[in-house]
């Protein structure tokens, strides 16, 4: 698969197809990008499991940190990697050992490791690299435009409210005319 660019339809299908997300390299510091992503995804209805050996057992923003992926007590659909590219193979080894196997490995903006991607795809996983799931969710829902950011999407279909408040949108869009 080409990892230089992704169709919006592919990213949308990835984000719609997962409900549990482990974030490897998540930070407990509220000023760090990984904290932003973990909190945002949790607020958008995903069940988020931060993974960081230094923070194991700690509870931050209502989420419990785990020391390693295998410590998470339930099946994980997607692993989001906040580690430098050279650490991705080791993370992937841990991912491939999980039962059941997660559907998606997602490497953050600035993180790309093509060799690891090939291995993950050979094992039947979907791979996204050098993207941020918060930005992608914000783009596809249209929320990111609330901050003046170019979503690079246009649609004449009405966005759906996600629920849990008025300032949250879903990335799903119904057919034209749907209430």
């Amino acid at each position: 698969m080409n990892h230089d660019r992704y169709d919006d339809a592919f990213i949308r299908s990835v984000l719609e197809g997962v409900s549990t997300i482990a974030i490897v390299g998540a930070s407990a510091n509220a000023a760090r990008p990984s904290y932003f992503v973990m909190k945002y995804l949790a607020e958008r209805g995903y069940r988020v499991f931060p993974v960081n050996p230094g923070q194991a057992g700690k509870e931050v923003a209502g989420l419990t940190f785990y020391g390693t992926l295998k410590d998470i007590p339930e099946p994980i659909d997607m692993v989001d990697v906040f580690r430098a590219p050279e650490h991705v193979p080791a993370v992937l080894d841990e991912v491939l050992a999980l039962v059941p196997l997660p559907k998606v490995i997602w490497m953050q903006l600035g993180v790309r490791n093509d060799e690891a991607a090939t291995r993950a795809e050979a094992a039947g996983m979907q791979v996204v690299m050098n993207r941020c799931p918060k930005i992608e969710y914000g783009r596809l829902s249209g929320e990111i435009g609330w901050t003046g950011v170019n979503s690079r999407t246009i649609s004449a279909r009405r966005p759906k409210l996600l629920g849990g408040g008025v300032q949250r949108l879903s990335i799903s869009r119904g057919p034209q005319g749907q209430k």
Binding site: A30, Y35, F36, K39, Y40, E43, G138, E143, I144, W146, T147, G164, G165, V166, Q167, R168
Partner: peptide
């Protein structure tokens, strides 16, 4: 704000809104 957490996310620039 949707709730207190939402307000905190917005003021911390963690959420779009």
């Amino acid at each position: 704000f949707d709730d207190v957490n939402h307000a905190a996310s917005l003021f911390g620039l963690q959420s779009f809104g």
